[in-house]
Amino acid sequence: MSGAAPLRAQPAYLPPFRQSNAQRAAFVLLAAYALYAAAQFDLTWARFIIGLSNGARFLGRMFPPSFANWEPLLKGMLESLEIAVLASVVGIALSLPLGLLSARNLMPAWVTWPARSLVALCRALHPVIVAILFVKAVGFGALAGILALVVASVGFIGKLFAEAIEEISLKQVEAVRASGASFANVITYGVLPQVFSRFVGFGTYQFDSNLRNSTMVGIVGAGGIGATLFSAFQRFDYDFVCAILLTIIAVIVIGETLTNVLKKVFRA
């Protein structure tokens, strides 16, 4: 150390809050792109006005919501719930070992590489697209929805589990290893306690997410309330649409409340 090192790399004063030319150019490009893309979308004033009047009529027909046709609503909603529950359970059960195998601090590269690829593959396609494929494979109905959401769950929480395990303190693991514990016991005592509450957090988050998606996969025939919703739209049965949407939102809100209780119990 020889006193204060001169900061020769920078000029003495930078103008405050100056933006670099590259940043400015990026913003100009973005704006130009937005204009160009908007033009492609046939975004005209006339269309906007027509849309507004359509929208007003549409809203008028949505209210008051009609629960007269409650039987398919209840049946579809229950099926959505069942899909979400089963997909979450199976998805989490598969994600635990996959997350462990993907953790680069505990496993050798020849194990993590295939596990990480599998998880990434599960994450690459939107659940609804996966649902389409499963509908073709196992036919219409809840099974396709469950399988699609299992894939989505593995893709999402498999990754989060692995990241959580990679962030643990290895000192605690070392101490358990030093006691002569077997690999399984090292995982149970050295690794799991460090990540358990985060796992509960991810698991409940995934359940919420599966619940939302289970109301959608029906649009492609994979069971649940989505099919009812889609056909109501196609029949212009908008007061029923409104009833379905209100029910979905209510169920999601209740689901989130329950998962918060769960997190409290496990101190996540």
């Binding site: 000192k171 605690q172 101490a175 358990v176 306690p193 460090q194 358990f196």
Partner: peptide
């Protein structure tokens, strides 16, 4: 640094 398993 003791290396206790903190959450146990």
């Amino acid at each position: 640094e003791y290396n206790l398993v903190e959450r146990l």
